Amino acid sequence: MHLPVPRGDLSRELANALLCNPSGEHAAYLATVATGRLASASDVLDDGDLQLSLFMLYELHYRGFAGVDDRWEWNPGLISLRAQIEEAFERALREAAGPVPSVEPSSSEVAQALFALAASDAGPSVSKFIQRKANAAQAREFLILKSIYQLKEADPHTWAIPKLQGRAKAAMVEIQADEYGNGHLPRMHSELFRQTMRGMGLRDDFGAYIDRIPAVTLAAVNMISLFGMHRRHRGAITGHLALYEMTSSIPQAAYARGFRRLGYGSAVTDYFDEHVEADAVHEQIAGRDLAGGLAEDEPELVPGILFGAQAAAAVDALAGAQYLDAWEAGSSALLAGAGAGAGAGAVA
Rank of each mutant, 00 (worst) to 15 (best):
S332P: 14
Q51F: 00
L117I: 12
Y180F: 12
L185M: 04
S80L: 06
Q176G: 01
D205K: 10
Q150C: 04
L93T: 09
M172V: 01
L151W: 00
R12M: 08
L151R: 01
I213V: 11
A168F: 12
R212W: 09
V268P: 00
R82L: 09
D178S: 04
A92M: 10
N135Y: 03
V126L: 07
L262T: 04
E274Q: 11
A321Q: 05
W327R: 03
V276Y: 03
V126R: 10
R257M: 11
E179L: 04
G235V: 08
N135K: 01
Q322S: 15
A122N: 15
G201N: 09
L81T: 01
Y255L: 03
E174W: 00
A256N: 03
A267E: 09
S40T: 11
M197S: 03
K163V: 04
G207F: 03
P105C: 08
L57N: 06
A338W: 05
W74T: 04
Y58K: 15
G24C: 02
P303Y: 00
D205W: 12
V110D: 02
L3P: 09
N135F: 09
K128L: 08
G341K: 08
T217N: 15
A314L: 05
M56H: 00
T35S: 15
L52E: 09
A118T: 03
D270I: 00
I175G: 06
L241D: 14
A236P: 10
H189N: 07
V103D: 12
E59I: 07
A319H: 13
E141T: 10
Y271D: 12
P101H: 07
T217S: 15
A256V: 01
A111W: 10
G258A: 09
S80D: 04
K146Y: 00
D325Q: 12
L117S: 14
V315Q: 00
N21L: 15
S107M: 15
A215F: 02
G337Y: 02
V44G: 06
G330L: 08
A295W: 03
R37M: 06
D273R: 04
L18R: 03
F307Q: 08
M188F: 02
G304V: 08
E174C: 05
A119E: 15
A118I: 10
R140W: 03
A313K: 03
S125G: 05
R260Q: 10
Q165F: 15
F227H: 01
Y255K: 06
G258K: 05
L78F: 13
D9F: 06
D69A: 01
G199C: 11
Q284C: 12
S190Q: 07
D69C: 02
L243M: 10
P6I: 06
T196M: 13
R234F: 15
A83R: 09
E109I: 14
T238G: 11
A313V: 01
L57G: 05
A321K: 11
P99L: 13
W159A: 06
I161A: 04
K152M: 06
D121Y: 05
M229E: 00
A291T: 02
M200E: 05
L117Q: 13
F259A: 00
A83I: 13
